[in-house]
């Protein structure tokens, strides 16, 4: 008994915590990505109250708390780059290796912002408010990367 001064003090416990998930797309997102996969087309939904078009589709319009699902509206895969960033930061588990650019795109005919990668352009040539268009993935899998990225409009 008594103080044992020789005992080592453990400074850290290093372990990796792994948790598996199955995230559900649901009706609207399943259909959204079915269209990107099969037809290379983007669809949005229209709020039944304020008539604004939302992409990606949402169950309710947040502003009006009104349902959106009555209409399924084709929207353009061209739009305006609202804002962007070039990522140089890296950390463990990062899904894509930096540097890369991504931004918020205001697709023509929609009223909210769609986030995606920006490619085929030198980073210092990217400017807010430039016109961009989607580059479709030749091997679509029904997920976000059915669009590879957005590039400056030709």
């Amino acid at each position: 008994m008594g103080v044992n001064k020789m005992t080592e003090i453990i400074k850290s416990v290093k372990r990796t915590n792994y948790v598996p998930y199955r995230w559900v797309y649901g009706r609207d997102l399943s259909r959204f990505f079915l269209e990107t996969k099969n037809n290379q087309k983007l669809y949005g939904v229209r709020c039944t109250k304020c008539q604004k078009v939302l992409v990606p589709p949402a169950e309710v319009c947040g502003v009006c708390f009104a349902p959106t699902y009555k209409e399924w509206i084709p929207v353009s895969d061209h739009g305006v780059l609202n804002t962007y960033t070039v990522v140089n930061l890296s950390f463990p588990g990062q899904p894509t290796n930096p540097p890369y650019a991504y931004g918020l795109v205001h697709l023509d005919g929609t009223d909210n912002l769609f986030s995606h990668m920006i490619g085929e352009v030198e980073f210092d040539k990217i400017k807010p408010n430039m016109r961009v268009q989607a580059v479709w993935n030749p091997d679509p899998k029904g997920d976000l990367f059915d669009i590879k990225y957005f590039k400056p409009e030709e």
Binding site: R22, V24, Y25, G26, R27, D28, L29, S30, A58, E59, V60, F65, P67
Partner: peptide, 26 residues
């Protein structure tokens, strides 16, 4: 487990039903 419904769909419909039941709007 229902893998056909997104959580926002589940929540949105439930909240709307509760509002309807009590005769309130958001």
């Amino acid at each position: 487990r229902d893998e056909r419904i997104h959580k926002t769909e589940m929540i949105g419909r439930t909240v709307q039903a509760a509002l309807d039941k009590s005769g309130l709007s958001i």
